[in-house]
């Protein structure tokens, strides 16, 4: 494997975003790119990352390899990069280590690190193609604020999507709260758009603890996509350049 990423910061942000959900995971490398899939310890949330080969320049992967990496170790090494550094990931056949080289774009500094790999026997889950009943795109900062605000009142949030809009509401010991968003187009700042594409009304309840955790990815993308269908895990997607993505799935809370 040899994969050069213009922005070391991208991988750093991805790792920062998922590190509290998953600890040890396989980075599956093949000629289409680098993918990661892992469930959190409680087995109610799933992280799925895809960095397509187009996100790298150049990208070369001659044989499929799984790089088992401890994310705390990877985070430590990625913190050694400067924010504008270029990152090249390298691994041999049947590797013991993954090699990370940081290059400064405007100086001649080159730093190099190896991270020891681990054997991770990870269950691989099939993620079905799903036509969701509601697809909502909204500013990622807005979603983060809603989740954080409602978490001050309750452990869970009800997300209801109708043709009127999307309503986030909660009920807790001190009282209740709700935020409703309607479709909104901002020509000057499209990252502020709210788009709601609905085929049938949806109402589901989720644990806010997980949603707040997913929102750590907000720095990766100005917009977040929420996809919901009744009795199906919620998909929270942060789109990255070149069709790469970071996705989180969360099983809804179901009545007692």
């Amino acid at each position: 494997l040899e994969a050069r990423l213009e922005q070391a910061n991208l991988l750093k942000k991805v790792v920062d975003a998922i590190k509290d959900l998953v600890q040890d995971c396989n980075f599956d490398c093949n000629d289409s790119g680098i993918a990661l899939q892992a469930m959190d310890n409680s087995h109610v949330a799933l992280v799925s990352m895809m960095l397509k080969s187009e996100s790298f320049s150049p990208f070369r992967c001659d044989r499929n390899i799984a790089l088992g990496i401890n994310l705390t170790s990877l985070q430590k090494v990625l913190r050694c990069a400067n924010s504008e550094d270029i990152l090249t990931l390298k691994a041999e056949d049947a590797p013991d280590v993954v090699n990370l080289v940081f290059e400064s774009a405007d100086s001649d500094r080159l730093s190099e690190y190896d991270i020891k790999l681990m054997d991770i026997d990870q269950e691989h889950l099939g993620i079905p193609e799903t036509e969701y009943a509601a697809n909502i795109s909204m500013p990622s900062a807005e979603f983060q604020k809603i989740c954080r605000d409602l978490m001050a009142l309750s452990e869970s949030v009800a997300i209801e999507c109708t043709k009127e809009g999307v309503k986030f509401s909660c009920n807790g010991d001190i009282g209740s709260g709700s935020v409703t968003l309607r479709s909104h187009t901002n020509v000057d700042k499209p990252e502020n758009n709210v788009e709601i594409d609905l085929t049938e009304p949806v109402a589901l309840t989720f644990s806010l603890k997980y949603l707040v955790n997913f929102c750590k990815a907000s720095g990766l993308s100005g917009q977040v996509k929420l996809c919901l269908s009744n009795e199906v895990p919620l998909l929270v997607e942060y789109g990255l350049a070149s069709n790469s993505y970071l996705r989180f799935y969360l099983a809804p809370k179901i009545g007692d």
Binding site: M39, S42, H43, V44, A45, L46, E123, H124, L125, G126, I127, P128, E231, V232, P233, Y249, A251, P252, K253, I254
Partner: peptide, 14 residues
């Protein structure tokens, strides 16, 4: 929990 069961049902091991 039901949540765990649901995630397992929806994302079967492949």
């Amino acid at each position: 929990t039901l949540q765990q069961i649901l995630l397992g049902l929806y994302f079967p091991s492949s």
